[in-house]
Amino acid sequence: MIDRSLPPLLSVRGLEKHFPLGQGMLGRAVRHVKAVDGVDFAIWRGETLGLVGESGCGKSTTGRAVLRLLEPTAGEVHYDGMDVRALDRESLRAFRRRAQFVFQDPFGSLNPRLSVGAMLEEVLEVHGLGGANRRDRAVELLELVGLRPEHIDRYPHEFSGGQRQRLGVARALSVEPEFLVLDEPVSALDVSVQAQVVNLLEDLQAELGLTYLFIAHDLALVEHVSDRVAVMYLGRIVEIADAANLYREPRHPYTRALLSAVPRPDPVGREQRERIVLQGDVPSAVDPPMGCPFHPRCPHPAKDDVCGSVRPLLEGDPGGHLAACHYQPSGVETST
């Protein structure tokens, strides 16, 4: 099981990813979109960390920056003791055998011109895996994700959305990784198919001992799959805790608003349900508000000038429930 006394498999500190916006006179970008603006978290072997937030909060960019699909602007990423940002080309290739990515779009994430067999065999070939008979290994991978051997000669357009997502998982697993970044892996799928793919991911985790960074905007789903959950807002983590704690006792006002906004599939008592409806929209990440990024929309009664000038740090129970709010409730029960 998950042993948090060991050093974490992945630890991220002060991660930043800024995208240049337009060009200045001398070819240097004058303004930046601060998509990820100082993110800290750690993932221990065998666990699932859920990363939630609304569109544009930087969750997907964080996932890509961790695997260096995007080069981070600043910060540290350590994977099993290794400095990911310092890897040269050869060691980066080796790292990518250990850490893989599953994409959101089941239609865009597969090369339409390659048959399933060609796609999987290419990966095996590049990494010198699968031995003499790569086709047999490809069939094994298909069976691992619940597809049939005869699917091997088909092309992506001949599969349904759920099946394509299984293919994306099979491709990621073909290099036998231990860590997967799952970027909205089921949000493009129908509800009934979502459940199939989520169950598959959970089975694979148990079977192969995988560690997941599960990025999604569906809060109920993240609660279901995650051991711990981090909530992002405007490029920063505003709260991180065990899933049960975070959903039962949210400490950050944003988390509370987010949770209360989720429509519940149960009409009983809907009129009485307390709902915090936030006003306005998320501010631009080009020019995020000073201090706490959430303060312009924050409904917290204690909100004051400090919120608008001092950036709150993630704090709370050490190693347990952390929130980035100056006025988080203190003395709530600690994590198990």
């Binding site: 290739r93 990518r96 893989q100 990515f101 959101q104 994430s109 290419e122 990494h127 990621a172």
Partner: peptide
């Protein structure tokens, strides 16, 4: 497109990504 990002994530070389 994500399949090109996937090819990068799988450690494919730039030449391979461009040609194939």
């Amino acid at each position: 497109r994500e399949f090109v990002q996937a090819a990068t994530a799988l450690g494919f070389s730039k030449t391979r990504i461009i040609l194939r």
